[in-house]
């Protein structure tokens, strides 16, 4: 009984450790790709910017999943909803501000 308990705790430790390791390796890969792209300059500026943006969003998801431990499980619903709501607010404010100011910029030219 005691042995199985220790083993399951040891398993839990290894499971958590693998989570951090996976997060670190994924984040490192998702960092190296855009840096390498910019350093080599293979793509056009616009294409590079798109790749940087998409990879940054994926890396943010990786950080949330593996470091902040927010996933789709019921125990993490509160944090997930809070993040989604804040994300929606931030998106509205950023998109609205950029739309408004760049529209104004075009009209002033």
């Amino acid at each position: 009984m005691l042995v199985s308990k220790i083993r399951s705790r040891e398993d839990a430790y290894r499971h958590d450790l693998r989570g951090y390791q996976a997060g670190f390796i994924l984040a490192a890969i998702l960092t190296i790709i855009p840096f390498a792209l910019v350093a080599s300059g293979t793509f056009s500026t616009i294409a590079t910017l798109w790749v940087i943006g998409v990879i940054a969003l994926i890396q943010i998801a990786v950080h949330i999943r593996y470091f902040l431990h927010v996933d789709l499980s019921p125990e993490r619903r509160e944090e997930l909803y809070l993040m989604l709501f804040s994300g929606a607010l931030v998106t509205l404010m950023i998109a609205g501000m950029l739309w408004l100011l760049f529209n104004l910029h075009t009209r002033m030219m």
Binding site: T31, P34, F35, L37, V38, T45, T48, L49, I52, G53, I55, A56, Q59, I60, H63, I64, F67, L68
Partner: peptide
């Protein structure tokens, strides 16, 4: 720990928008 991981998350935005976006 939350704070520290959160700051790294913000940094992902900074290096992508400011540095990589600026140099690309």
């Amino acid at each position: 720990a939350l704070f520290w991981h959160f700051l790294d998350l913000i940094w992902v935005g900074i290096f992508s928008v400011v540095y990589l976006g600026g140099i690309a």
